[in-house]
């Protein structure tokens, strides 16, 4: 079959629907006038189109949609689906809220951690540049103290640092001795 007939025969269904453009109409009709093969094709197809389908009636049409909805609803009782979660607005909003809260709490924790890390009272962050020899015993004691209290760091986040910050050198020394004795004699 040559491509001209092929093209016309592809257009016949559009032509028979009756809403074709003027251009298609002219093209099909002028070809049909001179081509028996395509005229026969048109005849067969227009005969086919006359064959009707019996109507099952309004009762069928009016009840089928509801029937499908009910039967389909029975077949999938509340199945969980991620897609469902993301397509419906309410669950979607709550998922977004939870995610935002998680991200917020993460960044807040991060900030707190950074503050603790940069605590100027922590031995590792101390500036030793202006220490002289007389300060060294105190410095060593402070290191020991630092070890002692960091082992007992309160998980609630309260730091011993603030309490020690108000003590002077002598008080710290005696406190350190007391701690040492506790370590030797206590539990």
């Amino acid at each position: 079959m040559s491509s001209v007939h092929d093209e016309i025969q592809e257009l016949i269904n559009i032509y028979l629907k009756g809403n074709e453009s003027k251009e298609i109409k002219d093209k099909v009709e002028s070809h049909l006038r001179e081509c028996k093969e395509c005229r026969d094709e048109l005849a067969v197809i227009s005969e086919l189109r006359k064959v009707e389908v019996p109507d099952p009636g309004d009762l069928f049409w009016n009840t089928l949609p509801k029937k499908i909805r009910i039967t389909a609803g029975e077949e999938k009782p509340g199945r969980f689906s991620f897609k469902k979660l993301f397509f419906s607005p309410l669950p979607f909003a709550s998922v977004v809220m939870i995610l935002m809260l998680l991200i917020l709490s993460q960044t807040r924790n991060k900030n707190i951690n950074e503050e603790t890390f940069n605590d100027p009272l922590s031995a590792s962050n101390m500036d030793y540049s202006d220490l002289n020899e007389e300060d060294i015993p105190l410095f060593v004691n402070n290191l020991l103290l630092d070890e002692n209290y960091s082992l007992h760091e309160d998980i609630s986040g309260n730091s011993y640092h603030s309490e020690f910050a108000s003590l002077d050198a002598k008080e710290l020394e005696s406190f350190n001795d007391a701690l040492k004795n506790e370590g030797l004699h206590g539990g």
Binding site: P65, I68, R69, A72, G73, K84, S88, P89
Partner: peptide
């Protein structure tokens, strides 16, 4: 999304 009337 759960709006079953859409299928009707």
């Amino acid at each position: 999304a759960g709006e079953t009337d859409a299928i009707e």
